[in-house]
Amino acid sequence: MPLLEVDNVTRRYPGHLAVDQVSFSVEQGQLFALLGPSGCGKTTTLRLIAGFEQPDSGHIRLHGEAITHLPPYERRVNTVFQNYALFPHLTARANVEFGLRHERVRHVGNGPARDAAARVDAVLDLVQMTGKAASRPAQLSGGEKQRIALARSLVLEPDVLLLDEPLSALDPNLRKQVRGELKALQRRTGVTFLMVTHDQEEALSMADCIGVMNAGRLEQTGPPRGLYHRPRTRFVAGFLGAVNWIDGSGVRPEAVHVERDGTQGRDATILAVTFLGNCVHVEAELAGGARMVAEIQNPRSEFRPGDEVRLWWRGEDEMRPEA
């Protein structure tokens, strides 16, 4: 039985369907990422699971039990908000302690009650914020606020931790580092994470399983590699990475080989060469007029605009989405 099941859930807003018959399930211990452009319904889906909104139809189950219409304070899920939503009048430590006082309201199944102070200490240590426990949120940096927001939720040992764009409020140069830290934290605690993101690199690098949403619908669910290489729709293919569309099938730029004197493949003329440091993008026009981009690592020879070349790729690198 999956830990969390979202079963045919629909949420209607005046004028449009925010979430349209979405179904997916999350297994115990997984890091599941809901990926999609802004306005695709991924955050609304998260809010439905947290209980801030009610679906117009469909069911949400935790451990097989329907929680669809429970208020947020009776669900064993916790949320890390996009802007962290720390309580400004409380210290970092008091923020972490906040939920412990209400724990009896929930159906606790974690064995004997443990000392609340010790639990707060442990979780502050886990996110390495022991030294900042007495600070108020206004005195914390973005990264520190995020750690406190994580600690505040993790101390309650939720069945599922919901994270709404957890990295978007951080400095771009901090994001990659925090990506790794979040993933490590998830492994260490064993807590199931359900994360919402619009950044495909974030989803690919962190998630065990990705669900791609578009215009309220869940287009495809699967592990990162499967989704990247075998997308079911053109949207999924394009959202996860660059694609050259040619004769109804797609080829990723890094799968396209460029050769000067090759015998196989198609004739093409190079239009532009862009140096990107770790690779080179070669844009070429095929004999038929179609254009393709090839991404070349360590190019053996220097290509120049106007060069006549041949482009080829393996059959197994061709993607054929159904829609």
Binding site: A50, F52, T79, S153
Partner: peptide, 9 residues
């Protein structure tokens, strides 16, 4: 919402 999420009625 955060307060409700953390169990407060």
């Amino acid at each position: 919402e955060a307060a409700e999420d953390l169990g407060a009625t």
